[in-house]
Amino acid sequence: MVRYIIRRLLGALAVLFIVSLVTFGLFMVVPVMTGASPAYLYAGKNPSPELIANIEHGLGLDKPIPEQFYMYMKGIVAGRTDLTDGTADGSRPCPAPCFGYSFRYQSPVWDIIKDRFPVTLSITVGAAIIWLSLGIGVGVLSALRRGGFADRASMVFILLFLSLPSYLFAILLLYVFVYGLKWLPPTQYVPLTESPVKWFQALILAWITIGFGSAALYARLTRANMLETMSEDYIRTAVAKGLPRKTVVRKHAMRAALTPILTIAGLDIAFLLGGAIFVEKVFSLPGLGLLFVEAIGKQDLPVIMGLTIVSSLFIVVANIIVDVLYSAVDPRVRLS
């Protein structure tokens, strides 16, 4: 088991390395080769060639490409001190893990990400709680009452939220609860540590938007899995043993039906941790998603790269966690 995890972690490192390589190539090397040096982005209108050269030097763009990449990777592990903007104020400190220095934010990329991450984490956790409890609850219930009222009602719920575009839903929520009923103040994110109530008020609509949309999907999946599991032979055996229906459903059916769903949930959560771009934008929540949007708008390459690598880290790690959990639940899966 431990050996397996170590092997998987090594594999994850390899994946992350490749992701970094590709991102690096895409954002740093390709523009230079096509003659559009990223330095122009920082140099204002009609820059002098010296200024460009200076900035390029400050970004390390004048070094050979392999060296640049080496420096970048080394920065992630050990931090770097060689970053300057080529102007008078000299060097920009960037302790490990250093994903470069953002000239737009005047701060190391990692600090920005660290700053914004709690917002995204808050969104993700809240939304996941809603979609897992609601989705699985509705799915199990409708499978157990197949064809009954609860099942049909949940079908309506599922259909509604699967077909309702989430941007429409989000804007609808915003107009009804914030501008219409005025139950909620116009959103202004406040950290949980500062004021739990304001934190909650700022996030609830985002949770509902993501939570309900995903809940519909999860309800559909859960329902299908539950129905399939309930018709398995081992469920018939459990009933034939004389087990109470509650035990049959909880211990025998749900464990088998929900295992694959938790796998999917793990990956979905990891994906969301990389930033809920749309929702953060609509509700002005300054998380990683919004950061990404801003960075693209400002063409802030180091931030875009940093975010890409960090979100792939989430996915890679989630993959490992999910696989290990799966093998803990299903004895037929062996990790070796």
Binding site: E232, Y234, T237, A238, A256, P331
Partner: peptide, 8 residues
């Protein structure tokens, strides 16, 4: 298929 795969 008549025995639950997850339990001993």
């Amino acid at each position: 298929s008549s025995l639950h795969p997850f339990y001993t």
